[in-house]
Write a protein that binds this DNA or RNA. Structure first.
Length: 287
DNA sequence: CCCCAGGTCAATT
DNA sequence: AATTGACATGGG
């Protein structure tokens, strides 16, 4: 990949591999983005607002200087990871080949664990457009204002005094009590997300699941999307459907069976496989 | 009006 | 250990 500066506040990336901004943002891993046009998006992450525009010549990131790009966005977009190698390695079966061909530009973002935890608590028994609205409501109510009409996702401290009633006003529904519990555990230090990168994956999962309303699916999303555990295979209804149909001959199966299978087929790269499958499954509209 | 959604919990068998 | 209904909210 080549990085060029254009003026003071625009970074242009050319000669890149496996990067399609639409596929990256719309494959279900991230909720804080807005489509501004064809292949043109606004993202809010790590307290920053970033516009991204992609065409056949390259990708524009703005407003953004070289330092910010290096400090935040290289890691956020997982730009030091070789996706050609990954796609090659996990293409061991026809279904995965099809899934990868369908969305060759997917990348797994490295999001903030705190935001990721609350976001996927909100995701349970909910639809993606609604999840996005609820997170935007919470950010507007509690987060720091950035730019004209955008708000960073609130820190644990900023959510410290949020009540169930206030959170309900943000349309969290029955998940309000789960958010209160997660805030309490993080603010009190009972859970220290900053240390999670050093812990074993199973240990992290266990601690995440000690929060009310966090089961294995939500914990695994946090592990894969914000704690770099790329072997983790979050299994929701869509992934269950596509796995059942293509890897278990349409039979009824348990989540446990899927986890075993994913590790057996894709090993340490199962998490990447999950993202290709999720996006693919939703396009197929299978049952 | 009924159904269901990137699930989880608690009660029941 | 497996099954079942409830849960807030909003859109089809």
């Amino acid at each position: 990949m080549d990085i060029k500066k254009i003026g003071k506040e625009i970074i242009c990336m050319t000669n890149f591999d496996s990067f399609n901004i639409k596929e990256i943002l719309e494959c279900g891993q991230c909720f804080r983005f807005e489509k501004m046009g064809e292949m043109k998006y606004k993202i809010i992450a790590y307290g920053k607002r970033l516009f991204i525009e992609q065409n056949e010549n390259g990708i524009l990131f703005y407003p953004c200087d070289e330092r910010e790009f290096g400090d935040i966005w290289i890691e956020y977009f997982d730009l030091n990871t070789d996706y050609s190698r990954i796609k090659n390695n996990i293409s061991v079966d026809k279904t995965m080949k099809n899934a990868i061909e369908f969305a060759q530009g997917i990348r797994i973002l490295n999001q903030d664990p705190w935001e990721c935890l609350i976001s996927f608590i909100i995701s349970q028994n909910n639809r993606i457009p609604q999840i996005k609205k609820v997170i935007a409501n919470i950010s507007k109510k509690y987060g720091t204002k950035i730019g004209e009409e955008d708000y960073a996702f609130p820190t644990p401290q900023q959510l410290k005094n949020a009540t169930m009633e206030e959170l309900s006003e943000c349309k969290t529904g029955f998940r309000n009590k789960y958010i209160v519990d997660a805030v309490k555990k993080v603010v009190s230090g009972e859970i220290c997300l900053e240390k999670f990168l050093e812990y074993e994956t199973d240990e992290c999962r266990q601690m995440l699941m000690s929060c009310k309303g966090v089961g294995q699916k939500v914990a695994d999303c946090v592990l894969l999307f914000s704690l770099k555990r790329r072997e983790v295979f979050p299994t929701d209804v869509w992934v269950k459907r596509v796995m059942s149909q293509f890897y278990f001959d349409g039979k009824e199966i348990q989540i446990k069976d899927i986890h075993k299978k994913s590790l057996k087929v894709w090993g340490e790269l199962a998490g990447y496989a999950q993202q290709y499958l999720f996006y693919y499954a939703r396009s197929l509209n299978i049952k």
